[in-house]
Write a protein that binds this DNA or RNA. Structure first.
Lengths: 203, 203
DNA sequence: TGTACATCAGTGAACGCGCGTTCACTGATGTAC
DNA sequence: TGTACATCAGTGAACGCGCGTTCACTGATGTAC
């Protein structure tokens, strides 16, 4: 599936996917605030108006990019989890850490994409839909990770009910602060240490 | 100090401050990504080129806005703290909560300004300068708040070293997620509850 | 006190640009008979 | 199997716009003598 429309053809064949892919690359390089619909169309080799067959306006295109990025991030987290299989307490704890680290690593290496996802560029309706599926993939991964810790008695009981919300907020917060230069990068590991300690994980 | 240049005058008198004030209002209303230098100048009643006497380009103007916002946020937090004076454990704990709530309340009511501060719109140099003064005002407020808790034996000793970084990350993370619609607003109080519980505050 | 002059803080016209979106259109595709 | 035709997926020109920045300039200010 090429991005550029083949020369001399009229129909692209996969224009919607190509638009998203090109837009993603351009956001990755320049930031969402500098994305231009015309430039995306040009990159794909199509006239600007062609995009309007798939998205009513530029903002929807951006939301489309966001939607795909959330899927990709979940893929990444799934992959991170699968590196530490098994029922042992040790494995469960490793998964918890891996989950946080995957989030941070992705954000660090793709700051512009991270900003697009969490920086208010996606329409609020879309974000709210994300919540409602906060039975979403990523959320569920975290839940089951904490369930595993609980199963091996490896997380403080009184705190368990706050587990998801605390972990998510803390990891996201540290990540965002570091990515934007408000905390030094080295502090991320300390945050994970502190988070585990405070949740009573691994002790 | 009026923003609009008085009719029939040539020198504004306080152009720099007026530019920042006008830019802040426009970001507040439309978001930093839609700020226009020309519009700011027009709002102030001055020609676009006048701004270049104070800022080398538009991005520096935006960073200037950010700089002032950080000061304002610290003011706000200071005010929140001062509502619960005293050396009692109860007061210390109230201060801790007030600090988090002030952060969240500000961000909720000023989403666009919050984004400007933490969404990658300020130049990275500026953000790094902020870190180095992470002996900055807001950071120091948090430190002394935790010191007070420690003094009354109201925070788990082993966790104390992570206190600042954990509290900041968690509160910022929850705030950012809620502001962008990725978590329901109601969950902020739960996050504070969970944070206190996990730090061993108030028990 | 008065005056020359350097400096400061603005003006306003212009450059050159790319943008999002609309619109009437046309080439390609596939389906019904 | 062949053909008419509806539908789909593009084109490309145009609209109207506001943008950031530069430049030569001028009005106002204040300081040195």
């Amino acid at each position: 599936m090429s991005l550029l429309k083949p020369r001399g053809t009229y129909h692209h064949g996969n224009l919607q996917a190509a638009l998203i892919a090109a837009a993603t690359q351009m956001v990755r390089a320049n930031g969402a605030e500098h994305l231009s619909l015309r430039a995306v169309a040009a990159e794909v080799g199509v006239s600007p108006s062609a995009a309007y067959h798939y998205y009513p306006d530029k903002d929807s295109l951006i939301s489309g990019v966001g939607q795909e990025l959330f899927e990709r991030l979940a893929d990444l987290q799934e992959a991170a989890l699968s590196q530490f299989p098994g029922k042992s307490a040790k494995a469960a704890r490793a998964r918890f850490r891996a989950l946080g680290r995957a989030y941070f690593d992705w954000a660090s290496s793709e700051a512009n994409l991270f900003r697009l996802m969490f920086g208010g560029f996606c329409s609020i309706d879309f974000a709210e839909a994300q919540i409602k599926r906060q039975e979403s993939r990523a959320w569920n991964l975290l839940c089951s990770c904490l369930d595993d810790l609980q199963a091996s008695g490896d997380i403080k009981k009184t705190i368990r009910p706050y587990g998801e919300i605390l972990s998510w907020s803390t990891v996201h917060g540290a990540t965002a602060l570091i990515v934007e230069g408000h905390l030094p990068a080295a502090s991320f590991e300390s945050v994970l240490d502190g988070l585990e300690l405070s949740l009573g994980i691994g002790k």
